[in-house]
Every structure is written in C-alpha cells, then in structure tokens.
Simulated scan of single mutants.
Amino acid sequence: MSLFLLLSNMSSCEAQLSTIFYNKTCPNALTEIRNVVRCAVSAERRMAASLIRLHFHDCFVQGCDASILLDETPIIQSEKTAIPNISSVRGYNVIEDAKRTVESLCPGVVSCADIVTLAARDASVAVGGPSWDVKLGRKDSTTANRARENTDLPSPFADADTLISAFSVKGLNTRDMIALSGARTLGQAQCFLFWSRIYSNGTDIDPGFASTRSRKCPRTGGDTTLAPLDLVTPNSFDNNYYKNLVQRKGLLQSDQVLFTSASTNSIVQFHFTRLSDLKG
C-alpha cells in the first residue's frame, strides 16, 4: 500500500533510505522483528491496530524518528504524555521486545525508528492487511515534542476541512488522508470520543447503529470503556471502514465527515467501490 510507504518515508533527516540497509550489518533483523510482531498479534489481536497507530503518532510529529518512545527526563517532555497518547497509545512493549532481540544479534545497529516502521507493516500483514517495502536507515531522535503531539495530531472531533489542512501541512493530500484513514478498520475507541455522535440524533448517523453503540456506552459513566471502530470485523484489515461510512456507521465524527463532506465524499465512494469490486 503506497500510502503507508509514503507515511513511512516522512522523516526530519535527509539520510538516504534503502530497503537493503541492514542486509550486511544485521541480515536477520527483519525476520526477527517480524517474528516478535507476529507473536504479539497472535497473543492479542488488537495489538495490530496499536502498532499501526503507534507508527502514525510517531511519524506525524518530527517524522518517523521514534521520538514517541522517549521517556520523560529533566530536558525532555515525553510525547507519551501528550493528550492524544497518554493512556491511549500502546505497543511500546512490543517495540522493546523487538529491539532487545535485534540487539542480541547485532548490538547498536538497528534503530528504534526502523523497528517502529517495520512493526507497523508486519502488524498489517498479520491481520490480513497490505504489505509494502520499507526503506530503512532512519536515525533515532534525541528530542521529543509533546507540544506538537498535542496540536498536530488530527482530533476525533475534527471537520473535513481541518483534517485536510492537518494532513496538507505534512505533505499529504486529501486522497492520501482518506487512504490512510482506512487503517481505522482496525482498533478501538474510548466512549468519551464518540458519545456526542451516538446521542446526537443527527442525520449523519444510522439510528440502529447509534442505538447498538449506546448499549455499551451509556450517557453517563464508562468514559474510557473501549468499543471497536468496526463492529463486524474489528481485528481484520478490510474495506469495512469505507462501507461503514457509506452506511452512516462511522464511529468517530472525524471519520463520518469524510463521507458527508462534499470535498471528500467522492473519494470515499471511490475506495468503497474499488475495494468492493476487488472482493468480487
């Protein structure tokens, strides 16, 4: 999937990346990282979505530099504690396991930035999603930017114009944004992120869908209760994301607006039709 490849190549440095970067210095690195990711996803299917999201949150601020892995220090304000990440982004333990494994093979060779990027690809494959060639050779960041994590990452309440603008700043156009959004066919969201949508009685939400969702997320209580973004196949990478939007069953407001907005509707329809045709 070229859009994941484009995201993976977002970087704050000008280093030349290559798919064969570790072929001589650590030839078994990619296999070992893949094995760690497969085991993690096998143990907890939801981990696939978590690793893809971890990669996105890393890349969207400062490029794909593993800055999101840095802990708080007297001179670093950790991105882990940014509002979109704290008690939400997960998968750090899988990256640590993969790093520990490759360090035992070739100490000081494979960057955490490359491991995060490879883990996202391998997580996608593990749940039936696309694969892509990952260019490697990133350097790990020694700085983090919590402030930009708080301001740059797209809000689940954003309208279409705001989303388009946020991605445009990163060099991604509207088609790129909608294609990348399709990764939300996986994963879960906390109730407080979509309460206003399911209780809105709006015309952009299917009434039956809203009623079903309200059973697990009542008007009061359960702020952090998790609900799958896709009720049908929450742990499989498929085209249900676009199908849900067409049926007014997008869980987050920032997803459903991609179908209801005139500036993005035709692209969502294209992805829905194209992927439906491919399925037969």
Rank of each mutant, 00 (worst) to 15 (best):
A49K: 06
T225A: 06
Q62A: 05
A98R: 14
T73V: 12
V268R: 10
D133W: 10
S196M: 08
A113R: 13
D159M: 03
T19W: 01
A183T: 10
I83A: 12
L229W: 04
K24M: 12
I198S: 05
V36W: 01
I164T: 10
G182H: 03
D159P: 07
R138I: 07
L54R: 09
E79F: 01
T19G: 10
H55R: 11
F167C: 01
A82Y: 01
A179D: 09
I52A: 08
F259D: 02
S88T: 08
T260S: 09
L69H: 00
H271M: 08
L136T: 11
D204R: 02
S131G: 13
N23V: 10
L118R: 15
L193C: 05
I115R: 13
A66H: 06
T19Y: 06
G171E: 05
P218D: 07
S88A: 08
C13W: 13
S214M: 02
E103Q: 14
P74I: 00
A49N: 08
E149P: 00
L30I: 15
E72L: 07
L118N: 15
N265A: 09
V232M: 07
E14Q: 13
C39F: 07
T225C: 02
Q247P: 02
L3Y: 15
D97A: 15
L17Y: 14
L278P: 00
P107H: 03
L17I: 05
A210K: 06
A98D: 14
L54G: 04
I68R: 11
S276P: 07
S196F: 06
C64S: 04
N28Q: 15
I68N: 03
Q188R: 03
K99R: 13
A49V: 14
A48L: 11
K139T: 15
G222V: 15
S214V: 00
C64T: 03
I20V: 14
V127K: 08
L51N: 00
V169G: 01
G171Y: 11
I164Y: 06
S18C: 05
G187I: 15
V102D: 03
K170F: 04
V246L: 14
L258E: 07
P207H: 07
Y242N: 15
T264N: 13
A126W: 02
A123N: 14
S104G: 15
